[in-house]
Amino acid sequence: MSAHTRAETPAVTPPDEALVVVRNLTKTFDVSAPLVTRVVERRPRQMIKAVADVSFGIARGRTLGLVGESGCGKSTVARCLAGLVAPSEGELNFAGHVLEVSGAWDSGSRRGIQMIFQDPYASLNPRWRVERSVGDPLLAFGIVETRAEMRRHVAGLLEEVGLAESDGRRYPHEFSGGQRQRIAIARALASNPEFLICDEPTSALDVSVQAQILNLMRRLQREHHLTFLFISHNLAVIDHMADDVGVMYLGRLVELQPKDALFSAPRHPYTQLLIKTVPNVDAIGRTSAPLSGEVPNPMDPPSGCAFHPRCPLATDRCRNERPLPLPLAGGGQVACHAVEDHRTLT
C-alpha cells in the first residue's frame, strides 16, 4: 500500500472548508530511563508514539468530538494544536495559515486558539484575583489599554459565563469546581478566539454542574460562532456536544464519522464495543459486559492493527498488516480490515 491510497484528510470536513486542519500529525515522546540506568541495566531507549499519523479537519462553527481510552493520545493532539508541545511530524493549519512549531503559547499565529483544561484549578493562578486571570490576556493581546477598560471588559465576560462582576475580586479557591470552570471559560473567551480546544472540561464536575457548563458552552458557541475540538471520555457528553466524532486507539484515529452515523452505525469494532460498554442510567441492574483484554503497552504496540489482541474479528491479516483509513460513503473514515472485507460482529 502506498501513502496515496490513504485519505489525507477525512471526508467529513473537506480541507478547503475547514478552519482547523491536522495533517498526518505524529508525536513521539522519549521516555527512556536516564542514561546511566540504561547503561547499567542494559536497557534500550524507549519511545512512545503518543499520536501517529492523525488527520482531520474541523469546519468553522462545528464541533469535533474526540474519544478514546485513557492514554490513547487525545490530550497530545490537543496540546499540539494549542502549541503546548511540538509535533514530531505533520502539519497543522489554522484559518489558512500553517501553525508554527514554536511551542510558544501566546505566539501570534495561535491568538485565535484557546484551550480549556480538565482541572480549572490547576489552570488558574491561585494567587491571582479572578479579575487578573481573566483580564491578563486582554492586556497581553492589546485588546484593552487601561486597567479601567480591562475591568469593564472582565465584568462583561464574567456576566457572560454566569458570574457576577464582584466575583472578579475573589480568588479561585473561593469558588466551586463548576464556578472555576466558568472562570476558565471566561478567560479563554477574553482574547476573542475562533477556535476553542476543550480537554475534558467537565470530567471533574458532577452531572448537575456539568449540565450548566455544557449548556453555557453551546450557547457561547452559537453566539460567537466558535469552533470546538471537544475531548471527553464520556460518550454521552460527546453525543450532546459534537457534530463529528473521532475515535482514537493507541495514538491512531481509527474512526471518524458524523455523530449520528457514529452512534447509530459504528463501523470499527473498537467503536462498537466502546458504545456497548457505556454505563447507562436506563440500564438499571444490568452490568455492561466489560471490554475484554488489556490496554496494550504504548511503548510496545501490537503489530498490524493495534486493536487486534482485543478484537473479536481479528484475522491473520489484522495481526500483520496495519489497516489504512478507508473513506466511508456518508463522509468519514474507518481503519479496519474487517470493514474492508465486509466481516461483521455477529
Partner: peptide, 10 residues
C-alpha cells in the same frame, strides 16, 4: 476510561 471502568465496576 469507560472500558476499564466497566471492568472495575464488574
Amino acid at each position: 476510561d469507560v472500558s476499564i471502568q466497566a471492568q472495575v465496576i464488574a
